[in-house]
């Protein structure tokens, strides 16, 4: 039953992705590896772009998108419900029983190691996507590498510019310069 499997896979993503935003990215990559008929690694880049350009939390947008890719209209809803189910359960438990959860020394200790590791996981996902972009067809794509270098400099120099602008520039560049290869 695909819907049950979809719910379970996104339940696990919701349970283990800590830190919000792009934190679900590495899990989606793993999902593309284990369930290639659901989504491909390249599609994940498109999902990030669409999720950043539309309202709503990025993690939720990506869950809906991936679920839709995997199993159509019901898939989007089921994946999203799967992803939020663990949070709802955990937050209710914390709200009810653990009033000083964030000040517990054990939680603080766990987070000392979790924070850099989550950055590492997002780096892993970013490198995977970069590999697809510049080395997708087994040869180095020089134009894509130059475009990436220019965009990184731009993004880091003009921090206040909305991500939507960079995504739009990427789209225009892609159409006119055929950057994707």
């Amino acid at each position: 039953m695909i819907y049950l499997e979809l719910f379970w896979e996104f339940f696990k993503i919701g349970l283990f992705s800590i830190g919000g935003g792009l934190a679900t990215l590495p899990f989606l990559y793993k999902l593309a590896e284990t369930h290639p008929h659901w989504l491909t690694a390249a599609q994940i880049g498109d999902m990030v772009a669409i999720s950043e350009s539309t309202p709503g939390p990025i993690g939720i947008n990506m869950a809906t998108f991936a679920g839709y890719q995997a199993a159509g209209y019901p898939g989007g809803l089921i994946a999203t419900l799967g992803e939020v189910a663990p949070s709802v359960i955990i937050i209710i438990i914390i709200a009810r029983f653990l009033s000083n959860f964030d000040k517990n020394p054990k939680v603080e200790n766990a987070f000392y190691a979790l924070r850099p590791v989550v950055v590492g996981l997002i780096t892993f996902a970013g490198l995977k996507l970069l590999q697809i972009v510049v080395y997708g067809e087994g040869v180095l794509n020089g134009r894509a590498m130059i475009a990436f270098a220019i965009l990184v400099v731009g993004v880091l120099k003009f921090k206040k510019v909305h991500p939507l602008v960079w995504i739009g520039l990427g789209a225009v560049g892609g159409i006119f310069l055929n950057l994707g290869g």
Binding site: G45, V48, L129, A147, I167, G170, I175
Partner: peptide, 8 residues
Amino acid sequence: FGGIRIAV
């Protein structure tokens, strides 16, 4: 989308 992925 080839270009968008680079921006991402």
